[in-house]
Design a binder for these strands. Structure first.
Lengths: 109, 109
DNA sequence: CTGATATTTCGATAGAAATGGAAATGAGGA
DNA sequence: TCCTCATTTCCATTTCTATCGAAATATCAG
């Protein structure tokens, strides 16, 4: 994770619909969710949703996979963990007095 | 942490200079850093820096305290932890199969 | 091939955010 | 009080972003 990638990821998340979308996928887990289904759940037009999915994808926060006629989206947990780690990097001077390395945040890792 | 607050916080971090600024303060720890000193470190004009500090402050990610003629800024670790927790909330369906509650990310908490 | 379904691309409009110099504000020292 | 230092506010300009209907693309079933 570098500054540029982190800014891109944070910008992708810094929008009402995209944040809801990402959390929806985080909570959906391995199973993921089809694009159309997320549009239903969030109540926004398909074209808007597609735009937001593209942003999250470009930021590396989600992955897509075609399944029959649908495209299934999944959260990329590794990317999320990397972003969180970047924010907390060397917290309080990085002398280890603050957070033990073992407590580094990680989901599904 | 709610969606609105999270979007505000993420938007505050989704900018090259503000992200660098926030990480600088995270790494500075309890001691914090004066506004002018952060401008020096980041090499940006005071007026720009002040704008960015205000954004982070409005988002609740940093705190300020006057000390003599300077204003010392500090990262708000609790806010950061709250934001991270919000992103990971109910990860993978929230059945606990993914992240044990004890591994919830936390810095200085 | 034809029709149906799922998703993305296009395009125009409207709104929000970053920038930095100059001036204003606020606090402390002599 | 007067001066200096630290920080913020103001302002105009420029650039980036969200929105969503309509049309285009892609996959599959029959």
């Amino acid at each position: 994770m570098n500054a540029q990638a982190a800014v891109t990821a944070l910008a992708a998340l810094a929008q009402e619909h995209r944040l809801a979308l990402f959390r929806l996928l985080v909570q959906a887990g391995d199973e993921g969710m089809a694009a159309g289904r997320t549009a239903e759940r969030l109540g926004i037009p398909n074209s808007s949703l597609s735009f937001h999915l593209a942003q999250l994808n470009r930021a590396g926060l989600i992955r897509q996979e075609r399944q029959h006629r649908s495209i299934i989206y999944r959260a990329d947990y590794e990317a999320m963990n990397g972003l969180v780690g970047y924010l907390m990097e060397n917290c309080c001077g990085g002398d280890g007095s603050c957070v033990p390395a073992s407590a580094t945040p990680a989901c599904c890792g």
